[in-house]
């Protein structure tokens, strides 16, 4: 708890929760890839997972806690950081080399906002798959998880929201992963460049990986109607 009383402590916990959430993304993506293997594989995976009631509850509570801490710290840190400069500059220009690094769209410049968009996406996503808020009638007929996923994924609204969400998530983790290591104090001339590039690759994998599902379903859908 005392760790949260200082700027470095907060960043440290931010990095820890961030790394854990990245780890979760890997597991999640791996599970999702079973959608491409076929209905049996995916349903089998879903059922086995859902049977582990105790583990699932533990994992969900842990995950939820990590999310909440990560979000609350983001709000706190951003507020402090914003307050640290009362009068802004008339003009700003980066001294870092590189085109992207110098631009206003560099991931590290808008982490709070990319995080906020990811949160919105997460809420939509939980509304679709976990709470089934807006799919009540369509799901009544089938108990198959694969079938459920197919109904959701072929919706054009889902296509738009999930593509945007996945890309922004990719942008967020592309800085977040490497940044977490720095906040945890891991910086070494040999490994830091590797971590940097792995982080960017991870961002691409997350963005393409998660966006691929609604895209694949949209493609099969349009192929089927022709």
């Amino acid at each position: 708890m005392t760790a949260l009383s200082s700027s470095i402590g907060r960043k440290f916990v931010m990095g820890l929760t961030g790394l854990f959430l990245c780890f979760f993304l890997v597991i999640h993506l791996a599970g999702n890839l079973l959608l491409y293997v076929g209905p049996e594989a995916y349903d089998h995976y879903a059922h086995t997972l859902h049977e582990q009631k105790g583990f699932l509850l533990f994992a969900e509570v842990f995950l939820f806690t990590a999310f909440i801490i990560h979000i609350l710290l983001a709000v706190r840190l951003s507020r402090d950081n914003f307050a640290a400069r009362k009068v802004s500059y008339a003009k700003t220009s980066s001294k870092k080399g590189g085109r992207l690094a110098a631009s206003v769209i560099a991931p590290e410049v808008w982490m709070f906002w990319s995080g906020a968009i990811v949160l919105g996406f997460l809420i939509c996503h939980l509304g679709d798959f976990k709470f089934e808020w807006w799919w009540g009638n369509e799901f009544a007929s089938s108990g198959s998880e694969y079938h459920k996923a197919s109904i959701i994924l072929r919706d054009p609204r889902v296509l738009v929201v999930y593509c945007i969400g996945s890309v922004i998530l990719g942008v967020h983790v592309s800085h977040g992963l490497a940044s977490a290591f720095q906040s945890l104090g891991v910086n070494h001339p040999k490994y830091t460049p590797v971590i940097h590039w792995c982080s960017i690759a991870f961002g691409w994998i997350v963005a393409i990986g998660f966006a691929s599902f609604p895209i694949a379903w949209a493609l099969t859908e349009s192929a089927a109607t022709h």
């Binding site: 700027s7 400069r85 590290e108 720095q182 906040s183």
Partner: peptide
């Protein structure tokens, strides 16, 4: 403020 690893 706190460091957000922007490296400016």
């Amino acid at each position: 403020g706190a460091c957000t690893n922007t490296y400016e």
